[in-house]
């Protein structure tokens, strides 16, 4: 029961307190680039959740059961980049071939995730025992981070859509007001620091 409590705390912490977008500033390019349309945001969020969890499920055992015993843990960054890129390509190919409906909703965003630093950042972070204590905790932290990504990008997109219809000064139109909005959201999320 205590273990479940720790996992729940990990989930909430990685989703709200150490938010991957607003606290660690990973995955910012897709955050700014895809958030103009709400329809894109849902598909992107779903794709990020799937890819992040599958990537951690592969990279975590790869590091602790292959790279470290062979004494080559230092190549983890290179190995993870390649593994994540390969996994994304593999998922995309399988969706294209066998699940057209799922590909239309989620798979079309996969090429944008191949180089998403949030996926690599989380895969590397969970290797730290202070961040995730075991494999299950690593998966929960990853899921929480992905859900945090989805929560923030959906909220941000909703604000951007509202801002499009407002009378924003010319100098602030477009990316400047988007960046100011993102910084204010980041400050707001700092307030959740004392939650756990």
């Amino acid at each position: 029961m205590e273990y479940l409590g720790i996992l729940f705390a990990s989930l909430i912490s990685s989703m709200l307190i150490n938010n991957v977008l607003l606290s660690t500033f990973l995955g910012i390019c897709s955050f700014l680039g895809v958030s103009k349309k709400m329809s894109n945001v849902w598909g992107m969020s779903a794709a990020v959740i799937v890819v992040m969890v599958i990537s951690t499920a592969i990279t975590y055992p790869l590091y602790f059961y292959v790279l470290v015993p062979l004494g080559i843990g230092y190549i983890n960054t290179i190995a993870f980049i390649l593994v994540i890129a390969a996994v994304v390509q593999l998922i995309e190919m399988l969706l294209k071939r066998y699940m057209e409906g799922l590909y239309r909703g989620l798979g079309v965003y996969l090429p944008l995730i191949t180089t998403n630093c949030a996926v690599l950042g989380i895969a590397l972070s969970v290797l730290d025992k202070n961040y995730a204590m075991d494999f299950m905790d690593a998966l929960v932290v990853t899921l929480g981070s992905a859900l945090g990504y989805a929560l923030v990008i959906v909220s941000f997109s909703a604000i951007r859509i509202k801002l499009d219809s407002k009378d924003v000064p010319k100098a602030f139109k477009g990316m400047p007001i988007a960046l100011i909005t993102a910084s204010l959201m980041s400050l707001a999320f700092l307030g959740l620091g004392g939650l756990i």
Binding site: C29, S30, G33, N40, M44, E100, R104, V108, Y109, L112
Partner: peptide, 15 residues
């Protein structure tokens, strides 16, 4: 059937 959705999804303007 996914070509249109694919093109729209790739319309990322971050970089």
């Amino acid at each position: 059937g996914c070509q249109e959705a694919y093109n729209e999804a790739q319309n990322c303007s971050a970089c």
